[in-house]
Amino acid sequence: MRVLVTGAAGSIGRVVTVGLLARGHEVVSLDRVPEPDGDQTRFHTVECTDPDAVAAVFAEERPDAVVHLAGHPDEASLPDSLTSHVVTTAALLDAMVEHDVRRIVYASSNHAVGRTPRRELLTTGTRPRPDTFYGVGKVAAEALLSLYADRYGLDAVACRIGSFGSRPETIRQLSTWLSPDDCVRMVDAALTTTAPGFAVLYGISANTRAWWDLEPGRALGYEPQDDAETYADSISPSPEDDWDGAHVGGPFATATYHRPALDRRG
Rank of each mutant, 00 (worst) to 15 (best):
A210R: 13
G245Y: 07
D226R: 09
Y148F: 12
S238W: 13
S146L: 15
S179M: 06
T194L: 10
V157L: 09
T230Q: 11
Y231Q: 10
R160W: 03
S179V: 08
A219Q: 15
L154K: 03
R167K: 15
A199M: 04
L145N: 02
E142H: 14
D213E: 07
M186A: 12
R185G: 02
A199Q: 06
R151Y: 08
Q225L: 10
H247R: 10
G197V: 08
D182Q: 09
V187W: 05
D213H: 05
A143K: 01
E142W: 12
D213W: 03
A158E: 09
E169Q: 12
G249L: 07
T193L: 10
A156S: 11
V139I: 00
F252A: 06
C183Q: 09
G197D: 14
I235L: 14
S179K: 09
V157K: 06
R151A: 15
D155Q: 02
V139W: 03
T254R: 03
L191F: 08
S166Y: 00
I161S: 12
S146E: 15
H258P: 00
S163W: 03
E215H: 07
E142C: 15
A219F: 13
Q173P: 00
A190D: 11
L154D: 03
N207C: 04
F252L: 06
P168G: 11
N207I: 08
N207Y: 01
A156N: 06
G153I: 14
T256I: 08
D150Q: 13
F198G: 12
T256C: 01
D155K: 00
D181Q: 14
V187C: 08
A232L: 04
L201D: 01
S175Q: 05
A219P: 14
G197K: 03
G165F: 05
G245S: 10
A210T: 14
L147E: 02
V139L: 02
Q173F: 00
H258I: 00
G250A: 05
T256Y: 02
L214S: 13
R172K: 12
V187R: 02
A156Q: 06
A219M: 14
V157P: 02
R160V: 09
H258M: 05
W211Y: 04
D182I: 07
W177C: 05
L178Q: 11
G221Q: 11
A141V: 07
F164Q: 11
A141T: 07
T170E: 13
D181S: 13
L154E: 06
L154Y: 01
I171H: 05
A253G: 09
W177E: 03
A232M: 01
S175A: 10
P237A: 13
L144I: 02
V157M: 10
G245R: 12
I161F: 14
S236L: 06
C159A: 11
L191S: 05
I171T: 05
G203M: 11
E142L: 15
D182L: 10
A156L: 12
A143F: 00
S175W: 01
Y231L: 11
R167S: 15
A140C: 00
T254D: 02
A255G: 13
R160Q: 12
L145R: 01
A206L: 12
I171N: 01
A143Q: 03
F164H: 12
T254I: 06
S146F: 11
Y222S: 10
Y148Q: 10
T254N: 04
S238H: 14
H258C: 06
R160P: 13
D244S: 08
A206P: 00
T256W: 01
A141K: 08
A210Y: 04
T230E: 15
L191W: 06
Q173T: 01
V157R: 07
A228Q: 07
